[in-house]
Nucleic acid binder design. Structure first.
Lengths: 214, 214
DNA sequence: GAGTTTCAGATGACGTTGTCACCTCTTCGA
DNA sequence: TCGAAGAGGTGACAACGTCATCTGAAACTC
């Protein structure tokens, strides 16, 4: 029937699916190795055959999350029917949509895991393996950033793609995060994420034109 | 010497300080009620006399964090020697500085605590009391937002203060968050948070002038 | 000023969790 | 056919949040 490597791969996939499911349902606190194992049809110790521990499992979930967002942005960039501004709008919304649809996953994507910094020392990503080489999560996030930057470059040119790309990406992240945390609710701001995205696209288009030679 | 109410107030303060200290040192995971109690000179059960539980304690820490940021922005707004654009720059940097100096506290400030949403239902703040009235954390965050909005209004006018204020606040949050999570590192973007803040201030100033009548 | 109430804090206990050591049993390679 | 390898199961342990209960001193009442 199934070779050992195959069934192990199936189990690993089930574990990842169960973890992602539990994450969506109840956040990181709800992702219990025991419950993950139960949903995957194994016991509590089995996940340790596939992941170093809970953090490692969640990091793998984050990697797949980044891959999905990267795929979506790549599809936007490669769509020949879309004008450049629409591609950018779509890329910004892609990020915000994850925050809306999978808020817990979204927070995981931007969580500096295993913070080492004390005081002034910066908090560093621990998404790297023992030897320091980037893992799947870092690579997947990097691919998203490359696709995003390419979309921005098509709109504002290569020269400004880095700076304005960073501005757009961080802004989208901020919109998603504050919408998620509820700080955009109420009568205080009276604006929506979509309106903010539109303003961003317009402002960057204008600014990149007027400051093209500065 | 000390009346009972006084010593209780001292204990409460010690608990908050210990929790904030542990949060800065090792993140929310490191904030153990046992260790909090130990640092405050009491035992593990004592915090329950002052807070409903760990979440409640961390919410109180978040409230004080918001108060400090609010104080800083208020001081900027009230400073008569600062031009309007510098006040805005300072307000944006105030948020980013918290992310740099106290990354764990920063994440706590924007954490939608006690997520209830399942699936499409939005994740809601559980920073409200049993009756649903906003707690100190919500009020402190609201005051920060009011001060921030006032600073923006002085630069772009009352009419645009809401929309551009939300844009600036969310963007600053995104810059802080992505700097914190390490996604701005490396050769990919080659820009700094300060440069992004400058661009934001310039773009919003320009946009608010050119679109004043639209 | 004696008796009662109140409440901050201490203590013991319980269930849950992440993690490890150890065991079993199937599958793969020679 | 036999040994190695590795996926998975099981027992155990420490740490954690939380609660019920107890204690002792301050605060209040008469």
């Amino acid at each position: 029937m199934a070779t050992r490597a195959e069934s192990a791969a199936v189990t690993r996939r089930s574990l990842l699916d169960a973890a992602a499911e539990l994450l969506d349902e109840g956040g990181p606190e709800a992702v219990t190795l025991r419950e993950v194992g139960a949903r995957a049809g194994v016991t509590r110790g089995a996940p340790y055959r596939h992941f170093a521990g809970k953090d490692s499992l969640l990091t793998a979930v984050a990697a797949e999350g980044w891959e999905r967002v990267g795929d979506r942005v790549q599809a936007l960039r490669a769509d020949p029917d879309l004008p450049a501004s629409e591609r950018l709008r779509g890329a910004l919304r892609a990020l915000i949509d994850v925050g809306r649809r999978q808020p817990h996953l979204y927070q995981l994507l931007f969580k500096p895991q295993g913070a080492r910094g004390d005081g002034l020392e910066r908090v560093r990503l621990q998404l790297c393996g023992p030897e320091g080489d980037p893992t799947a999560a870092v690579r997947a996030a990097g691919r998203f950033q490359d696709e995003f930057q390419a979309i921005v470059a098509a709109l504002v040119g290569e020269a400004d793609a880095r700076h304005y790309g960073a501005l757009l990406m961080t802004s989208a992240h901020g919109i998603a995060g504050m919408e998620l945390s509820g700080h955009l609710d109420g009568d205080k701001w009276r604006t929506t994420a979509d309106e903010l995205v539109d303003t961003l696209v317009r402002m960057v288009s204008d600014a990149s034109v007027t400051t093209w030679e500065t």
